[in-house]
Write a protein that binds this DNA or RNA. Sequence first.
DNA 1: ATGACCAAGTGATCTGATCATTTTCGTTCC
DNA 2: GGAACGAAAATGATCAGATCACTTGGTCAT
Lengths: 235, 235
Amino acid sequence: MSTSGGVVRRSLLDDLAASMLDLIAERKLASGDQFESVRSLAERFKVAVPTVREALRRLEATGAVELRHGSGVYVGQHIGRLVLANPLAPTPSADRLVELLQARALIEPPVAALAAQNRTAEALERLDERLTEAADLIASGNHARLAEVNMDFHRCLAQASGNATLAEVVESVTVVNVREQLEILHIHGDRQADLDEHRAILDAVRAADAELAERLTREHLDGVLTVVSDSAQHP
Amino acid sequence: MSTSGGVVRRSLLDDLAASMLDLIAERKLASGDQFESVRSLAERFKVAVPTVREALRRLEATGAVELRHGSGVYVGQHIGRLVLANPLAPTPSADRLVELLQARALIEPPVAALAAQNRTAEALERLDERLTEAADLIASGNHARLAEVNMDFHRCLAQASGNATLAEVVESVTVVNVREQLEILHIHGDRQADLDEHRAILDAVRAADAELAERLTREHLDGVLTVVSDSAQHP
DNA sequence: ATGACCAAGTGATCTGATCATTTTCGTTCC
DNA sequence: GGAACGAAAATGATCAGATCACTTGGTCAT
């Protein structure tokens, strides 16, 4: 703490990463937009290419940018987020998986209640699309994609709450590839029952019945939790 | 999806980052332990130094490792976590801050209830320490440090729930430097009242009264939320 | 003992080049 | 005219080696 004001020494890399984020903000670039080439950034900031790349790797790890070989640097999907799922997280153990579901069972029900109060027409439509697609996937037997769409239902539900931070939290605890885990644990829940439960939740949200939406979501997740934790004990 | 089994092309960097995490796991290194020098890693994996550094920057961004100039590479504080606070997140706007507090007011009360059920002697002691330190800081007038300790109380409370994932979520939504934000918004809550509320929460947790712990935590956060959202409307 | 100093280890950054992939666009062939 | 092909440009990925800056631990004089 030698500098005045308690300002710690910022490395060149820290400045670079921050400057690049500023540049993206200045230009009002959105997710998916092309940014600038590595060489061009090196010139702009008067630093060497490897240094720019280190800074970009840091941004990349948080989903702020994306590097596509032969194509360019693009703005990432998670730019501006406060809460993130660890992209380098190891495959969770059975215990950790149970813990994760407990966390979801605790967080998501009140989020569903909030969604029932704040839902918009667009959000309801998005949720409806997920259920339609899920029904099709059950019919076609594409269980891998089905699991993904079902997870997406929960994420859309959180988005319907109108609170971006809550949506980020729910997204973070649902990105973990639970499907893969469930298959490893030889768990195969009743897919039709899952769909019916999701339908009931959406109906409650549509009817703006916060209490019901909360209860149904809790029952839904508790049901999943029961199945999984039983299986975790008998591997 | 050209390769069999749906395995997408993994770049050298992906392999490197994963291999380094494996190496850390193999050696059972814990947070704070020294890892290996950049040059040594480059030799071990038969790649160039800049490549190793890119991989390390990626790990660093998620808190898996830490690079200390002139000293070495160390295992980071957040290794193995599933949920993270974005280390590159911009300073949140007033609206975003209100949203963040709403999220906390929704998540933390049930977490407190869980903590009341699962708390250990160690967890209670840690919580007690925070309150003792907070009381000292109020007396000494160190308000900056006080805000940090108060945040830490909430994190310790989440840890007392026994659910690491929930602890990570709560940590993620409390690391944002709310203190700084509050000062910007010219908010100065009643510090003694805050301490008293924290004391009451701890008492409820110690008495294993889940319902009371939940209610007190909700009232506490709703109170903060009210003050902040009022201030956000009158800047 | 204690302090100043120095040297080895290590991260930080630079320079410049080569390889791999994607994209673009002109050419050719139907 | 349009589609398939292929060369060239743009761009990211990786390498090699060198130099600068910081930390640390030991040495040495006091």
